[in-house]
Design a protein around this nucleic acid. Sequence first.
DNA 1: ATGTCC
Length: 474
Amino acid sequence: MNSNNPYYRRIDLPAGDLHVFAHDDLYHAMGAKVLEMANNNLQIPNIRYMSYTPDAHVGVGTCIGTTAVWGAEDGFVSPSIVGSDIGCGMRLHLTNLHVDELQEVKLRRKLVKAIEKRIPVENHARGYFSDIRLEDVLRKGLHGLPGKYVPDSYTPRKATSLTHVECSRFRYDESVLDRIPMPVWHRAHRQLGTLGNGNHFIEIQAISVNEDNRHIAERWGLQDGQVAVMVHSGSRSWGGAVNQHCGSEVAKTMSKLGLGTSDPKLVYAPLDSEAGQTYSNLMYSALNFAVANRHLMAFAVRDAFKETFGSQAETRTLYDLMHNYACEENHGEESFLVHRKGTTRALPAGHAGNPQPYAETGHPALIPGSMGTSSYLMVGSSEGARNYHSICHGAGRIRSRNATKQLVTVDEFASSLRIGQEDEIVVNHRGLESLIDESPQAYKDVDQIIESVVEARLATVVAKCRPLAAVKGV
DNA sequence: ATGTCC
């Protein structure tokens, strides 16, 4: 049944097979609840494949770390699998600065202040991009932004494939947008350019290249000691509103068709049903919002760099990709509907789904660590095809926010960020209490997660990104 | 993750 590889197992659940790509120890730490959830998901008709990455943990209805696949012809789409933070994902920008130029704590503080000035992180804050039409963003993503926000040095207008949303699809039946109530429109409009809270962040990092993949790093333009900007955010309240509206529509379709699983909260509809199409289209509007929002925040960070280090400071887009969505993809000769909930696509060199600039190397897969720990730039391997080229999306939570607050003291958290030392990771909040639930102890060890992904032969490491400063919402 | 309501 199971192979001898300690990094992979197939689990024979009552409703079907679950594939787990994780070291035995990580698998055993996941607990029984994740198997129950997998079994519920596997009860959805026509499902072809389901797997967990090593960072899998319990979510609402579906585990974070799930890849669930249907055939495109007889597929079911599930708002419960995608979740409410539709389009949540990562963006990485490369700067022309070296880490030595940020050596002084004072300078990192100045940079963080300059970022804070441009990107509100408070709960009900208004973003600074009110001159942008929300409808244009929802319909066209980056193409809906005024030209001044898309300078060629930053993301060439023609290289929209640097965001994998637009690489797949961004035009759809626009009449569905009218289904979302006006108050939600207004809220989403004022949220353009805001970070959100929870695990979302903007981080300044220093790159170190993995020797084994130096040839790929060079093709991507990465250098040792290079300063990078990583943005982790989603579709703010727009995605939640889409999830809520479609959730009830999809549930109605289910009762009409007499469908259901052991979990009444797990909703899904045939992709070609009206409810399925409405969801699919509105989901794309949320993907467009999310990618444009990350772009705008990275644009604001670019401005903050110029203010802090002079006008010659520049940042350019390496890549933007999501880990919460459902999308039609070609694998081999066939077309599939792939759901990724807290998993990252990592295509290998030569795969036709790669955006043009990365056709020969595979595209960068951006994997964040927890606060204070390194993030990774990965590239997919051809063996990753067995998992539809899905890898982990981060460290993965091991304890709840409340449990973390009980366990970790402010002092312990501060020392994990080396606060007060020369190499302190500068955080925008002076009081760290409100961020304790994001401390490294709330998460698995990202190095172990990456080891599992590498040993399961799904992807390899191209570079590691060490945090220098972080901006978080509360 | 989010906004809202007690």
